[in-house]
Design a protein around this nucleic acid. Structure first.
Lengths: 197, 197
DNA sequence: CCACTAACGGAACAGGAATCCCGTTAATGA
DNA sequence: TCATTAACGGGATTCCTGTTCCGTTAGTGG
């Protein structure tokens, strides 16, 4: 018999919140389930029993984040939509709290199977959310009909993540707008057309 | 008085090699300095004293990698150069040994200050190595004169890293070629021109 | 309202990583 | 060749993470 009500849910919320706080403060490497339990004012045993590993905890955290992520833009202009997306991603990654969270989860995904799967689900969902911006542009005749919408959406985010990971430079609006413009130009040039199989 | 000769250098080489092996086998999360010492047939104390942390060890490893990284292509054609670069990056990341190494170092950089600095130096050096491909194309009149060469080079790698981190899909040649083509199209369209300050 | 039991939590315990101590080895320079 | 000392290495020690045990709390269904 499962008991999702009351206490169980309260504990989960408190632990996920505490895990977020801990991540922001000490980062992924310094994350310790005992510390999370203390912050959540919950027994260590509970955290170890329900999640068992840092990876599993982050996977759960990511699932939670996926549920409350923002809907896509609907400006009616592909250029505008891509720029909105790029700025949203840049702002998210630049935010001390959210950025630390994303970095931690990316890291966890390279170490832990559960976290990796949760991460892949998260990004698949995000890409699917934004893909209509592209397919609608295709329908309007702005882009070639065999354009791979998912790849276009990914192309917007890629430079931002790459910059965050490999340089000490901040993620500003200029960078975001360039990512959007680059993707748009390439999409118009047809480089995102699905290769003939 | 420093003693770089003989034994010291031998120990460093053995430890770095052992660290690489360990990384490939157990990944970043499972890395344990004691295990590295055992593999290198070196005293645990030595490893803890000279490096002290996983981050510092990886930073040293990365410095070592930077020294023996490959020179850029010189095909005389920007399209060809970018494609060569993209394929090189894709092959490196897809390689079980090198790929694991890069992922581990990226991870370490998000946790450890030393590793982060070493990583930034590494990528700055790589970008500088390949930037001439772009500036020469600018000189030939293929691209706008105020094109930001470094950004063009980064744009080639970005989609590959993003794909590796956020999807379970393999990094194949199609992906690499698309990254190069996308960058080329955008560069021609002028999206990598330095914004007027 | 009560019996049942899923889920929690404190405390004791176990295992392993990081540190410290101190004797040994081998570069270095005269 | 020899004195000096940087650097190494084995072993004891400390500290901390994760597990286990078992009594307690509080959702759930009747």
């Amino acid at each position: 018999m499962q008991r999702p009500g009351g206490r169980t849910a309260r504990v989960r919320t408190a632990v996920l919140k505490a895990a977020e706080d801990a991540l922001v403060e000490v980062g992924f490497a310094g994350l310790d389930l005992g510390d999370v339990a203390r912050r959540a004012e919950v027994g260590r045993t509970t955290v170890y029993r329900r999640w068992g590993s840092v990876g599993a905890l982050l996977a759960d955290l990511l699932t939670d984040m996926a549920e409350q992520s923002l809907p896509r833009a609907r400006t009616g202009s592909l250029a505008e939509d891509l720029r909105t997306n790029a700025r949203l991603v840049a702002r998210t990654l630049a935010d001390p709290r959210q950025g630390a969270l994303f970095r931690a989860v990316l890291v966890a995904a390279t170490c832990d199977r559960d976290a990796a799967e949760a991460l892949h689900r998260f990004y698949r969902a995000r890409v699917e959310e934004w893909a209509p911006c592209v397919t609608e542009a295709v329908d309007r005749g702005e882009l070639p009909p065999d354009t791979d919408a998912a790849e276009v959406v990914r192309a917007v985010s890629a430079p931002l993540y790459y910059r965050m990971l490999t340089t000490p430079d901040p993620l500003d609006e200029v960078t975001a707008d360039r990512a959007a413009a680059t993707t748009l130009a390439a999409a118009h040039a047809g480089t995102f057309r699905r290769p003939v199989t």
